[in-house]
């Protein structure tokens, strides 16, 4: 036994195995990345017009009504854009005014989303809140905050700001967070301007339309439903 070198104790064998395993896993990850990248690329206005469901819709999704409803086929909630066709798919028809308009062009909506995404980073949202569940745990998750019952008509947050639509209420809150204390733990004033607030709300509305495979589960269940019932 002592004279015969077994393959199992040969360093070169394990070195090669490590290289092969790593290489195989890496190649698989890269291949999956190509597939995933194609599926998560942002949609366009034409997609929305033509009723093409994208995992990440184009920026003009802010012109539409967005809800979050149970899909019987997929077994979890999915974002529904512009009305439900009855089987858990979006109809892309019902519009919803965003700061008084529902006809933002692709450029206008894209610019708002760009401003909002920049704002979400420069204002450091992620080090208190979670976005798509990632970030810090000091403040509520923002993934579907656009659909939160507190911001809807009759919701506590909208009532507190004295505004009549949720986008205006959210924008007002973002500009003067510490004058609207909702909890002992308050959001600090981050110097957010009116324009930046509008961008941030557009960013939040867009984020609520992303298909997150049913995260968060049962969102807004306690208030009956988010979908306006």
């Amino acid at each position: 036994m002592a004279n015969k070198v077994s393959v199992w104790t040969d360093n070169r064998f394990w070195q090669r195995s490590a290289a092969w395993v790593t290489g195989f896993a890496a190649v698989l990850l890269i291949w999956l990345t190509f597939d995933t990248s194609a599926q998560i690329s942002m949609g366009t206005d034409a997609d929305l017009q033509n009723g093409v469901t994208k995992r990440v819709p184009g920026p003009t999704v802010i012109n539409y009504k967005i809800t979050y409803e149970m899909s019987a086929k997929r077994g979890h909630e999915v974002p529904i854009i512009g009305g439900n066709d009855g089987s858990g798919m979006s109809l892309f028809q019902e519009k919803e005014k965003f700061f008084g308009r529902d006809d933002y062009s692709e450029e206008e909506a894209g610019a708002l989303l760009h401003l909002g995404k920049l704002g979400s980073q420069t204002k450091n949202c992620m080090n208190c809140h979670t976005l798509l569940g990632n970030g810090a745990y000091y403040a509520p998750d923002l993934t579907k905050s656009w659909l939160d019952p507190a911001w809807q008509d009759g919701g506590t947050m909208q009532a507190m700001t004295g505004k009549s639509t949720k986008e205006e209420a959210m924008a007002e809150f973002l500009q003067h967070p510490s004058t609207y204390p909702t909890h002992a733990r308050m959001m600090p004033d981050l110097g957010i301007t009116a324009e930046e607030a509008k961008g941030l709300v557009a960013f939040l509305k867009h984020m609520s339309s992303i298909d997150t495979n049913g995260f968060p589960r049962n969102f807004g269940k306690i208030q009956g439903a988010v979908n306006g019932k």
Partner: peptide
């Protein structure tokens, strides 16, 4: 190395459950 990279590289999947990925 084989075990860590073999499980760890594709273990990435557990971060891709809810961020909009398939």
């Amino acid at each position: 190395v084989a075990m860590l990279f073999g499980s760890g590289i594709l273990g990435m999947g557990h971060h891709y459950f809810w961020i909009g990925t398939p």
